[in-house]
């Protein structure tokens, strides 16, 4: 069996299957989101956010992000392996290909973190409830109070 250290599942056959399973997940997710906009042409932030932050959608979107990372890595890897080779790049080809793979991985990592932050929302309280009806927190009065003086 031919193996390659930079393939995703460490074997071509598992990459092949992953590429297809992830394709089905991405396709279903795309139809789902596109279908929502088709069914709700008026759209609007509140309706969209309410739908997208429902538990099934959060789970589905998280799954889709995982599928995206696997699918895009395997796909971009295939393209790079086809073109960034000695025939075109001579002895530099390994360095060129590794740089390409590194850039691809870095961008995918950015997508992963960004998408998870968007899907799971409000990291560091950056996203208050859309309705603006933020309930008063029990400890709200403590916010902004000077920390207790240190007994020196």
């Amino acid at each position: 069996m031919v193996t390659n250290v930079t393939s995703f599942g460490r074997s071509g056959l598992s990459d092949f299957v992953l590429q297809r399973v992830s394709a089905v997940v991405l396709g279903a997710f795309g139809l789902c989101v596109g279908g929502w906009f088709a069914v709700n042409p008026e759209g609007g932030h509140a309706a969209f956010a309410a739908w997208f932050s429902s538990t099934p959608m959060v789970v589905f979107a998280t799954l889709a992000v995982g599928a995206l990372v696997a699918h895009a890595w395997i796909g971009m890897w295939t393209v790079g392996t086809d073109y960034l080779r000695p025939h075109y790049f001579g002895r530099a080809s390994t360095v060129v290909r590794l740089a390409y793979q590194g850039a691809t991985a870095a961008l995918l990592f950015l997508y992963l973190i960004w998408a998870l932050a968007v899907i799971w929302g409000g990291l560091n309280g950056s996203t208050p409830p859309a309705t603006g009806e933020m309930p008063a927190l029990p400890h709200a009065s403590a916010v902004g109070e000077a920390p207790p003086a240190e007994g020196s």
Partner: peptide, 17 residues
């Protein structure tokens, strides 16, 4: 692969507020 950045950007904005 590139377009994903744009879609994520739009999704981020649309869900924000």
């Amino acid at each position: 692969f590139a377009g994903t950045a744009y879609l994520l950007f739009l999704l981020d904005l649309a869900l924000d507020s």
